[in-house]
C-alpha cells in the first residue's frame, strides 16, 4: 500500500506577467509517495527548481492546477505552515540558508518558529545533529565550517522540524567532491535508514542513479519518469535534451553496441565491474 504524500494536478507556473511568457511549468501531473527516494533531473531552466518550490508552498500554481501535500492544498494560506513543516527544503547555497551565528541555534530555528517546548527543542537539535554527523560542531560558528558541513547543518535544520519529506534543491552544486560525498551519503542514509521521503533535485547523473525513481524534466514538462535503469536506458532521448547518462552506463552501452555481451542498463560501478569481469572470464 502506497500513500501519496505530494500530488501535483495540472500544475502550471508562470514567472512575471502573462505577456512575458516565461512559463516555467506546463500542466504537470505528478505523484510522490511516502517513503520514496526520487531524483528530479533536468538542465538549467528545465523547471526543476520551480517544481521543487511548489512542494512546500514557496510557490503556488499560477493556473487553476493545485498541489496537495498530505491532502492539504498549498494555496490554502491558513495551513501553509502545516505544509512547510511536512516538507522541508534544503537549498543550493549553504551560506544563504543559515540564520544563526551558532550551529545549534540554527538547527533550533524551525522548532523555535513552531513554538516547540525548549526541552523538546534541545532533544530534537541533538538528535538532528547526530543524524547528520555534526554533533561535535554544535557550538561552532557556521561561517567557519566547510561547504559540505554547512549543508549537513542545513539538513539537520530540516530534520529538527520533523518533516516527513525533505526536498533538496541541488544541494551539492556548490561543493567540492569531498563535501558532495558527505552530503550525498547523509541523504542516502536518511532515505534508506530513516525512511524519509527524499526528493533530490540534481544535475549529477551519478546522484540520480542512487535513487529509486528518476524524473526527467525538460522545458517545463515531465519527459521521463521511471526507475534509474528505465530512464538511463533511454540514452538518445536524454541526449536530445542536453543530458547525459552516468559514465558507467555510457561505457556499458558503447560496449554493448560494439558487439560485446554486456547489458546496456547498468547504472552502478559495482554492476559494471561484475558484468565486465563476467564477460572477460566467460
Amino acid at each position: 500500500m502506497q500513500e501519496t504524500l505530494i500530488r501535483c494536478e495540472n500544475v502550471s507556473f508562470q514567472y512575471g506577467e502573462e505577456r512575458d511568457n516565461l512559463t516555467a511549468l506546463k500542466n504537470i501531473d505528478l505523484e510522490i509517495n511516502r517513503g520514496e527516494f526520487v531524483a528530479i533531473l533536468g538542465h538549467n531552466g528545465s523547471g526543476k527548481s520551480t517544481l521543487a518550490k511548489h512542494f512546500n508552498a514557496v510557490l503556488t500554481p499560477t493556473n487553476e492546477g493545485r498541489v496537495l501535500v498530505g491532502g492539504i492544498d498549498t494555496k490554502d494560506e491558513e495551513r501553509v505552515f502545516e505544509v512547510r513543516r511536512q516538507v522541508g527544503m534544503v537549498f543550493q547555497n549553504p551560506d544563504n540558508q543559515i540564520v544563526a551565528t551558532v550551529v545549534e541555534e540554527d538547527v533550533a530555528f524551525a522548532p523555535e518558529n513552531l513554538g516547540v517546548e525548549p526541552s523538546e527543542i534541545r532533544r530534537r537539535v541533538d538528535e538532528a545533529l547526530e543524524a547528520v554527523g555534526m554533533s561535535e560542531y554544535k557550538k561552532h560558528a557556521p561561517h567557519k565550517l566547510s561547504g559540505g558541513q554547512k549543508q549537513r547543518v542545513a539538513i539537520a535544520g530540516v530534520l529538527a522540524m520533523q518533516s516527513d519529506c525533505i526536498v533538496l534543491d541541488e544541494p551539492t552544486a556548490m561543493l567540492d567532491p569531498q563535501g558532495r560525498e558527505q552530503v550525498i551519503s547523509t541523504i542516502v542514509k536518511l532515505a534508506r535508514e530513516q525512511g524519509k521521503t527524499v526528493v533530490l533535485i540534481t544535475h549529477f547523473m551519478e546522484e540520480a542513479a542512487l535513487c529509486d525513481r528518476v524524473i526527467v524534466m525538460n522545458d517545463g514538462q515531465i519527459l521521463l519518469d521511471g526507475t534509474p535503469k528505465e530512464v538511463f536506458s533511454k540514452r538518445a532521448e536524454l541526449k536530445s535534451v542536453g543530458l547525459s547518462v552516468p559514465a558507467v552506463t555510457e561505457l556499458c552501452a558503447i560496449l554493448n553496441e560494439s558487439g560485446l555481451d554486456i547489458s546496456p542498463d547498468i547504472i552502478s560501478e559495482e554492476e559494471c565491474l561484475k558484468e565486465v569481469s563476467r564477460v572477460l572470464k566467460g
Binding site: 518550490k53 512546500n56 514557496v58 505552515f81 512547510r84 513543516r85 522541508g88 527544503m89 537549498f91 547555497n93 551560506d95 544563504n96 540558508q97 540564520v99 545549534e104 541555534e105 533550533a108 530555528f109 524551525a110 522548532p111 523555535e112 518558529n113 513552531l114 513554538g115 516547540v116 517546548e117 525548549p118 527543542i121 534541545r122 537539535v125 535544520g157 530540516v158 522540524m161
Partner: peptide
C-alpha cells in the same frame, strides 16, 4: 542573498515572533 535567505526562512516556518519559543 537576502532574497534567498528569506525563502529559506519561510521554508522553515518563520512567521514573525508570535508564538515563538527559544532553545535557550
Amino acid at each position: 542573498r537576502a532574497s534567498e535567505l528569506a525563502t529559506a526562512m519561510e521554508s522553515r516556518c518563520y512567521h514573525n515572533g508570535i508564538g515563538r519559543t527559544r532553545l535557550k
